[in-house]
Simulated assay, not measured.
Amino acid sequence: MTAYLLRRLGQTAVVLVGVSVLVFALVHLVPGDPVRLALGTRFSQESYDALRERSGLDQPLLVQYFTWAGRALTGDLGVSFRTGEPVTLLILERLPATLLLAGAAIVVALLIAVPLGTVSALRPRTLLDRAATVVSQAGISIPDFWMGIVFILLFAGTLGWLPTGGYVSPADDPAGFLQRLVMPAVVTGVVSGSVLTRFVRSSVLEARGADHVRTAEAKGLGTRVVLSWHVLRNALLPLVTVTGVQLAYLLSGVVVVEIVFSWPGLGQLALQAVQSRDYPVLQGAVLLFALTFLVVNLVVDLLYTRLDPRIRV
């Protein structure tokens, strides 16, 4: 187990270095001068040169990369061109909103996927199975921004039950926070839950046809015991991996949903950085996204080895 963990950590480090090089190169290929955007329409050549020098943009690209990467290892991701604030501070300010939205969305997704996918698999080729397939396919196909707009028109505009969007700290106003969390969490959770439903259904169908399940049924075990101990426990193992991928995706910021509901998360921060050519913020956000995917995948792999003894062997 220790050797496996060390090997995976080494692979994660190599991938992260490659991602950092790719991110740094792609960001600098984006057209536009971030210094001009930061200074506005009126500036002197002296102020322009001073900002370029202070930002390190007057150095060769190789020097810029190693300087940025070395500081990133210590948690220093630079300073925003647009606001002048430390990038690490900007990310930490947006991180709680993203964590809360992603956590709520994954709970909604699992509440949809596990029962719907299981019931669909236990009643294959029935009207219930076809209805579940249509619902999950619709959830995958409908754009999340359109669903968000419909939710706003219905629950905020017509019924007046919920606010149209925004964000308040749960510590300051728990009720207001929950009211603003419901719609973006449900919209995001429906999309992720539709994807997970397909995996749950196929996994349960595969587990029901396994030899050990047929043996358990032949021995006269009750249907509830067979389903809980022999079908669901094995069928839900692949769900761990898919849920981890969905969680990493949500933590990386659902940009469209955050914009529709004015949710100040990391996705919205990255989009603002792209629009303003804010190199440090964009590099820091994308590097955090990559690190999130790598860490979540590593945790899922380690958890999978604990859940499935065959992998350890």
Rank of each mutant, 00 (worst) to 15 (best):
T2K: 07
Y4V: 07
R7A: 11
L9D: 07
Q11I: 07
A13C: 03
V14G: 01
V21W: 13
V23A: 10
V30M: 09
L37W: 01
L37F: 05
A38F: 03
A38Q: 01
L39T: 02
T41F: 12
R42P: 03
F43D: 01
S44R: 11
S44I: 00
Q45Y: 02
D49Q: 15
L51T: 01
E53K: 13
S55K: 12
D58M: 15
D58P: 15
V63A: 14
Q64E: 00
Q64D: 00
Y65M: 05
F66V: 15
A69R: 07
R71I: 02
R71G: 05
A72R: 12
A72S: 15
A72T: 06
L73N: 03
T74N: 04
D76E: 04
D76V: 10
L77W: 14
S80H: 11
E85W: 13
E85R: 10
P86H: 15
P86R: 11
P96L: 06
G103T: 12
I106L: 05
L111I: 06
I112P: 06
G117C: 04
A121G: 04
P124W: 02
P124G: 03
L128C: 00
R130W: 14
R130M: 06
A131D: 01
A131F: 09
T133A: 10
T133L: 13
T133N: 14
A138I: 14
D144L: 05
F145W: 15
I149D: 00
V150R: 13
I152H: 12
T158K: 13
L159E: 05
T164V: 09
Y167P: 11
V168E: 00
S169L: 06
P170N: 02
D173L: 10
A175E: 09
F177R: 04
L178H: 09
V182Q: 06
V186R: 08
T188H: 03
S194Q: 13
V195N: 01
L196A: 05
R198D: 14
V204T: 14
L205D: 02
L205H: 12
E206R: 12
A210H: 08
H212L: 04
R214G: 04
A216L: 08
E217K: 06
A218F: 10
G220L: 01
R224C: 02
L227R: 11
L232E: 07
R233H: 04
P238V: 09
L239V: 13
T241C: 00
V242I: 12
Q246N: 10
A248I: 00
L250G: 09
L251S: 05
S252N: 15
V255I: 14
V257G: 08
V257H: 10
V260H: 15
S262T: 06
P264W: 01
P264Y: 05
L266N: 08
A273I: 00
V281Y: 03
L288G: 08
L288S: 12
T292W: 05
T292H: 09
F293W: 14
N297F: 02
V300C: 10
D301P: 12
R306S: 09
R306I: 11
D308Y: 14
P309N: 05
I311C: 02
I311D: 04
